[in-house]
């Protein structure tokens, strides 16, 4: 079972990402949710994850901060982090990729692009 963590302070945004993952139609995907970067770090301490999807703008610890904390942790830095945001331009994308983001996806989420990210980041089979 592949464990995926969705990090976003909006309940509806998390629900949308979760629904988009379901539409992609991969099996063996178990989804957990965190409401901000700090909450995500707490959850990541308790459980092992294979992929993190994170929003950029969040209270307490934003997506960029979360990405840096994950990538600087020897215990977590193997986890691919995908940033999903409605506020990115090319310069921001390049900066996030330089900070070792696996990918940067714009909202609204494109299902084909999400499919590519899942195929490249996880070992998955379609249902």
């Amino acid at each position: 079972m592949n464990q995926v963590l969705i990090v976003d302070d909006s309940t509806m945004a998390r629900a949308l990402i979760k629904r988009s993952l379901e539409i992609c139609g991969f099996e063996n995907l178990q989804v957990s949710e965190a409401i901000d970067g700090l909450n995500a770090l707490e959850i990541l301490k308790e459980k092992s994850f294979d992929l993190v999807f994170s929003d950029l703008d969040m209270p307490k610890l934003d997506g960029e901060g979360l990405l840096k904390r994950i990538k600087s942790s020897p215990k977590l830095n193997h986890i691919p982090v995908v940033i999903i945001s409605s506020k990115t331009n090319s310069a921001t994308e390049r900066k996030l990729i330089a900070d070792y983001a696996e990918a940067v996806l714009s909202k609204p989420l494109s299902i084909p692009l999400l499919n590519n990210v899942l195929e490249n980041s996880l070992n998955l089979e379609k249902i």
């Binding site: 945004a13 506020k87 714009s106 609204p108």
Partner: peptide, 16 residues
Amino acid sequence: DAMAEIGNTIVGRFLS
């Protein structure tokens, strides 16, 4: 929450 998400997404996409 849902309306805010829609507003953010649309205006972010528009400006980009």
